[in-house]
Amino acid sequence: MSRTPEAVYSRIRREVADRADVLWDVALALHADPEYAFAEHHAAALLTDELERAGLVVRREVAGMPTAFTAGSGEGPPTVALLLEYDALPGLGHACGHNLIAAAGLGATFAVHTVLDALGGAVLAVGSPAEEGGGGKALEVAAGVFNGVDAALMFHPGVYSWRRAPLTAQEQHRVGFHGRAAHPTGNPTEGIDALAALVELFNVLAALGRRLPEASHIRGIVTHGGTATNIVPEYAEGLFGLRAATSRALDDLGEQLRTCAEGVALATGTRVTVERATVRYDHFRDSEVLSERFAAHLARAGIDLTAPVPGVHLGSSDIGNVSVRLPAIHPFVAVMDADGSDHTPEFAAASASGRAREVMLAAAEALACTAADVLHSADLREEAWARHREAAAAGR
């Protein structure tokens, strides 16, 4: 497998170092002005302006989303995508460190852009809104944004430094029971209690949960339970979140939810509707060969990545939808110690710390060097795709 010339790596490192202050200013600007799903207007404007100023061809409002964008340079194939996230968490700001993801992706894009003359191919920065809720990357996949892309690369700040992300598949379903209203004392036998049916579904799902496989669960809330205490509820509705280790297991879990709901409806004389309420997030399928390249490049900065702890899952992300379509990486790099957690005020503060700056710059360099490897080596691309197809065929 041919090796990327050292001169290319040196140019990448120099480009990231020269832009270090600019990249950190971007990260801090995003951190100071947190914006939420599909409303990241200032973030998208800031990032696209920087990319356009560097000479990349910017397309705004891609996939029908006002805050999604792409920025390309060069001509593929091959083409490598660098992913930027920039949405925040309501009430917590950048407590997941997306300001660092955006800045690192920006820096990596700049660096690859400057070395395309030595590599050939194309680089595509993909700005993806609403990772925290809404699934910007899922919508971009469906719209064909990643068609013709050979690999998709990003990193995520965290409390662990892991080569790959153990991210589950997830979706939400809305379950509605339809009964018949009645007065509980005037004509109680004429009523069909939809709320009682919904409560019974919770009981059935609690029993089901005790025998679900690792990483699978169903959690629900009541979103509508009636209109008055002196009326038998004719309609009741719950919202249920489903997670599973793989997308195939999530399909099975969805069928189990539907079977349970239909059984409860039959037993209670109600009618039930079950529908998906959110964009589906597929499980993350790591491109091991590319993650190993990233880890090797990151080690140059003194940051060592390990395998994730067995049995630990860190939620879900729309990067999963990208990873089931093409080789992708999503390593975690710690910006605070493992005794903390993301989605906390402490993590939001860590995302603007000196350690965060060092991690962001090291990740930008490692992402760019990995992207250069993808563009330079046909053998690496072929190996990544071969392993990707094997994993898909096995349902992993």
Rank of each mutant, 00 (worst) to 15 (best):
S2W: 03
S2K: 10
P5V: 15
E6Y: 08
A7G: 08
V8S: 02
Y9V: 15
R13E: 12
R19V: 00
A20Y: 10
V22Q: 12
W24H: 01
D25A: 12
A27M: 11
L28Y: 09
H31R: 14
H41S: 04
A43M: 02
E52A: 13
A54I: 11
A63Q: 03
T67M: 02
T70M: 03
A71C: 11
G76I: 13
A81S: 14
L82N: 04
L84S: 10
L84V: 11
D87C: 10
G97R: 07
L100E: 07
A108I: 08
F110E: 03
L119E: 03
V123F: 02
L124E: 09
G135W: 13
A138F: 12
V141L: 06
A143I: 10
A151Y: 01
F155R: 01
Y160L: 15
H173K: 01
G176E: 14
F177C: 08
A181F: 12
G191N: 11
D193H: 14
A194I: 13
A197E: 04
E200D: 11
F202A: 08
L205W: 06
A207L: 15
L208A: 15
G209R: 15
H217Q: 12
I221C: 01
T223V: 15
H224M: 07
N230Y: 09
I231N: 01
V232G: 03
P233G: 07
A236F: 13
E237G: 00
L242S: 07
A244D: 07
T246F: 14
Q256D: 08
T259D: 00
T259H: 03
A261V: 09
A261P: 00
E262Y: 08
T268I: 06
V272R: 08
R276Y: 11
F284T: 03
F284S: 01
S287D: 05
S291T: 09
S291W: 07
E292I: 09
F294Q: 03
A296L: 06
H297R: 12
D304T: 15
P310E: 12
V312P: 02
H313V: 14
L314Y: 08
G315S: 13
S316H: 03
D318T: 06
I319H: 04
N321D: 14
V322L: 08
S323Q: 05
A328Q: 07
F332G: 05
F332P: 00
V335N: 03
M336W: 03
D342N: 14
D342V: 15
A348H: 09
S351A: 15
V359R: 11
L367S: 04
L367Q: 07
A368H: 05
T370E: 00
A371D: 02
S377F: 07
L380Y: 06
E382H: 10
E382I: 05
E383I: 14
E383A: 15
A384V: 13
W385N: 05
R387G: 07
A393V: 11
G395A: 06
G395F: 01
